Amino acid sequence: MPEAIRIENAFLTVEVSPLGAETQSIVTSDGRSWLWHGDPAFWAGRAPILFPIVGKAPYDRLTIGGEPFAMNQHGFARRSTFALIEHSGDFCRYELAANDETRSQYPFDFRLSVEHRLEGAKLTVSVTVTNQVETSMPFGFGFHPAFAWPLPGAEGHHHHEILLDNGAEPALSRLEGGLRRPALLPSPFRKGRLALDPALFVEDAMIFPEGAGSSLIYRAEDGPELHFTFENLPNLALWTKPGAPYLCIEPWHGTAPIIGTGAAIEDRPSTLVLGAGEKSRFAYSVTFPAA
């Protein structure tokens, strides 16, 4: 496996692995490390890319056009080796093209292009999905980055919270066996604010299928804050393992299916369908405190 490559500027140093085109570390110029370090005692991931599904499939089986396929949770992109296409001081681009292994799970010729770009104290990760076949291509897509909790410089008794820029109170969806329960629950947000507590995650991830908006702040009381913006990502999830020192802030376009709705990829919530030759772009940006 080729080693991770590094991009950097005066504010940030970021490492990206060819395995899954996954962000490995984000360090500001003052030496503070913001991304979860992937300790397998809790969770070995750091910032996986989710494609061609988000979440689980019933019994890890999908049907596509009525034909059954095996598909692990969150798809295969995060376990695939990407090719490095372009690398400069503050930018890199990896790509994954369909191959025999991917076609055995997902019978489409696609191209997945993943870019990491630095602009001052902002990191933008963008993904372009291209359908290279003459038939329609259904899929889901998501980001799954894990950030330190507590944030660097806010260790101790600082309270952490999520602030939705739209001030909304989106309804909550919960999982059972990796699939979404049918009922939506009252929002844990109050006027766009959610006070973070490990107890919120005893029942697994918190999923907000709609209404969370396209930007938020993750911050510590009287401490650092991270500013996020999302592009073409209408669903939001928050997740950690209770007691683990990270928080996943996950913008998605697609979710796990609702219990009882079957295995068809076409029927999964927020599934996208690209026509022949079409592309779709997804991105998130996060701005870090200046050193």
Rank of each mutant, 00 (worst) to 15 (best):
G75M: 06
H253Q: 10
F108G: 09
P18T: 13
G243R: 12
H37L: 15
A244Y: 09
R61Q: 12
A4G: 02
L151A: 03
Q73F: 03
Y94Q: 05
F110T: 01
V16C: 06
A146F: 04
P52D: 11
I259N: 01
D30K: 15
G223H: 02
G38P: 03
A4K: 03
A171M: 02
H159M: 09
A148H: 08
L274S: 01
A263Y: 10
E8F: 13
F11L: 03
V16G: 11
L151T: 05
D197T: 09
L194F: 01
R181P: 00
D197L: 13
P257L: 11
L184H: 03
S187T: 00
I5W: 04
V14M: 06
I265V: 11
D197R: 12
E3K: 14
W252F: 15
A171T: 01
G55A: 13
W36K: 07
L179Q: 06
T240N: 08
C92N: 07
H227Q: 11
H74Q: 10
I49S: 05
R61W: 12
T271G: 06
G120H: 05
A121H: 11
S80K: 06
A283V: 07
N99W: 10
H74C: 14
F110S: 02
L12K: 09
F143R: 01
L194R: 02
A83W: 10
F76S: 00
P269I: 13
E101N: 14
G31K: 07
P138Y: 15
A21G: 01
E15K: 13
W239S: 00
L118G: 01
L50W: 11
S29I: 06
Q73T: 15
M71Q: 13
P182Y: 09
G211P: 13
P68K: 09
T124Q: 11
T102V: 09
D165A: 07
T63A: 08
L62M: 06
H144C: 06
Y59V: 10
E22A: 08
E95T: 00
D90Q: 04
G55D: 09
S214N: 15
A212R: 04
W239G: 02
G66H: 07
P152K: 08
G140E: 04
L179P: 00
P224F: 03
H116L: 08
P257D: 01
P257G: 03
E278S: 09
E250N: 11
F230P: 01
L151W: 00
L274H: 04
R117D: 02
Y246Q: 00
N72V: 14
D222G: 09
R93L: 15
S17P: 11
E231Y: 14
P170N: 06
R193S: 07
A121Q: 14
L274G: 02
V127C: 11
E119G: 13
L196V: 14
E3Y: 13
L200S: 01
V54S: 10
L175G: 03
G254M: 15
D204L: 05
M206V: 05
F288Y: 03
N166A: 12
F51D: 04
V286D: 01
A212G: 01
G178P: 03
I64G: 08
N166D: 11
G20I: 09
V14Q: 05
